[in-house]
Amino acid sequence: MAEEKKEAKIVGFLCNWCSYGGADTAGVSRFKQPTDLRIIRVPCSGRVDPLFVVKALESGADGVLVSGCHPRDCHYSEGNFYARRRLEVLKRFLPFMGIDPNRFEYTWVSASEGQRWQQVVTKFTEQIHNLGPAPKREEKSDR
């Protein structure tokens, strides 16, 4: 049991207008969630450089989550389309870097979808716990 309680290190990049608001809505509605995730606020999911995700995974993250506005509902009209393209490519590219693509997900949560945010966090945290801690990158590169 004690081992199960150990937290995973999960980073979330959330756009200010939809998903960060959705996480706030979840908070205001007291939708309970696992405590592993640390949220970083960005203006738009399109601001997320895929390298951020890679850097986070390389520096010890067990999982990275990016969440933006639903496609066609972007505050900046088309930012999440760029995000979707970049992050989909990244997800397919991760195995070539020796990273399990299941450690990274991107999703869309609007400011009103507090309950959906709760489900996203719970599911992703569970997914990362099932994968276990990420293998140490330095050790891998030694081989």
């Binding site: 706030d24 908070g27 205001v28 007291r30 309970k32 696992p34 405590t35 606020r41 709760q118």
Partner: peptide
């Protein structure tokens, strides 16, 4: 640092 909506209101431990 958002320690209310993202922490105290959603975590029990």
């Amino acid at each position: 640092a958002n320690i209310r909506e993202h922490v105290s209101w959603v975590g029990v431990d």
